[in-house]
Simulated assay, not measured.
Amino acid sequence: MPFLNLSHVTTYVYKRPVAFGDHRIMVRPRESFDQHLIDATLTIEPEPSDVRWLQDVFGNAVAIATFDRRASRLVFDSKVRVQHMPVDLQEVDIEEYARSYPFTYSSEEMPDLLRSIERQHLDPQRRIDTWARRFINGEGATDTLAMLTAMTQAIRREFTYVPRAEKGTQTPIETLQRRKGTCRDYASLMIEAVRALGFAARFVSGYVYNPDSRDHRVGGGNTHAWVRVYLPGSGWVEFDPTNGIIGSRGLIRVAIARDIYQAVPISGIYYGFPNTFVDMTVSVDVTVDDASLPGHDAPVDNRRPVEC
């Protein structure tokens, strides 16, 4: 039951003072049975004239910052303390009727899952469908959880993780063709693949950390991305194709959305001359308290300079 200290600092630099429009910030972890938010502070520089909080359509905590002054530097500094009680693969319990694929969601759940089953990307040659169906057992029953686990681990094993600081995400077909990408590219590919098989899936943005010294997770140093798939009996289950893991061990959820563009950590506009923008830097540090790890005499430093 680790206690985590999270630091997420995003800094924008401009050549000269600019004016800022409203900025939308999603960096506050979600409350759930497996993660409890103990403390959270958000410091913004320059100080905004107003900050209001809201919950979006997915229940994510969103801060809207309004500014009335110009500046050549804009900083968002989020400090959070979380108690994490992760769910492991062994704790995923699927209803009997859904343990073998294919199956149909119940009539009570289907109306609320439909938009999360809909495909988001064109695939006229059905390349994603073909790739997804390779995980189906053609000679007998296909174990649902085993199939999703195999897909998750195949992406980690067969694709090359390449950090990319630029904005945007490759299309699932581009990722499939290039056989490389970032965590958000992998998440988009897997979401589209499981939707092609009829599963409800959502995009997750958050943080990744090493639960102990035996684990090594890829995607630290920045926000991380993975997938949630709805499985009757356990509900939304985490699948991280970047690290090939199932369950929430080492993963802290911040935002959940139907599409990746609905879960951008920070977005907004500025008003200034062309070419005024200089740079944006993001730093994410996660430390695990030693009190939560038997045998450790000091906090485990999880800082990793990796872009995701």
Rank of each mutant, 00 (worst) to 15 (best):
P102K: 06
V82K: 05
V27I: 11
V75I: 15
Y101T: 00
R81F: 08
E118I: 12
Q90W: 11
R24I: 09
V51F: 02
I117T: 01
I117A: 00
P48E: 04
F33I: 02
F58Y: 14
F67Q: 00
N60S: 03
R24E: 03
A40I: 07
P46S: 05
T43V: 10
P124K: 08
P46M: 04
I38S: 12
P29H: 10
D112S: 12
S32M: 09
R119H: 10
D77Q: 10
Q83G: 15
D39E: 12
F67I: 02
S32E: 12
P29W: 07
F58I: 06
R70I: 01
A71T: 02
I136L: 14
Y105W: 06
S78L: 12
F135A: 09
T130D: 13
A63C: 03
L74M: 07
R119L: 14
F67L: 00
N137A: 09
E91V: 02
T43H: 06
R127E: 15
E91R: 06
E118S: 09
M110I: 15
E108V: 13
P86H: 02
P102V: 02
Q90K: 09
G59T: 09
I128S: 06
A65M: 04
Q83C: 14
F135L: 01
M85F: 12
E96F: 11
E31M: 07
I25N: 04
I94Q: 06
I38P: 00
L113K: 10
R73T: 10
V80C: 08
H23N: 03
T41C: 01
L54R: 13
E47H: 14
Y105S: 00
R30A: 11
V51P: 00
H23L: 01
L114S: 08
A40D: 11
A98R: 04
R73M: 04
W131D: 13
I136Y: 13
D56F: 04
Q35A: 07
E109Y: 07
W53E: 04
R99K: 14
Q83E: 15
R134M: 15
E96G: 08
P46L: 01
L54I: 05
L122Q: 14
V80F: 11
V75E: 09
H121P: 03
D93C: 06
A98F: 03
V62H: 01
P124R: 08
L37R: 01
S116E: 11
F76I: 07
T104W: 11
M26G: 02
Q90F: 09
E108C: 09
I136G: 05
K79N: 13
A40K: 08
V57D: 08
W131Y: 15
D93L: 14
Q35I: 03
V82I: 13
Q35K: 04
V87H: 06
V51Y: 08
P48G: 03
F76G: 00
H36Y: 09
L114G: 02
V62F: 06
D39T: 01
P48L: 00
R133S: 14
I117Y: 03
Y101I: 00
I128G: 08
P111R: 11
I64R: 00
A132F: 14
R126G: 07
F76T: 01
R70C: 05
D88E: 07
H84E: 05
V62M: 07
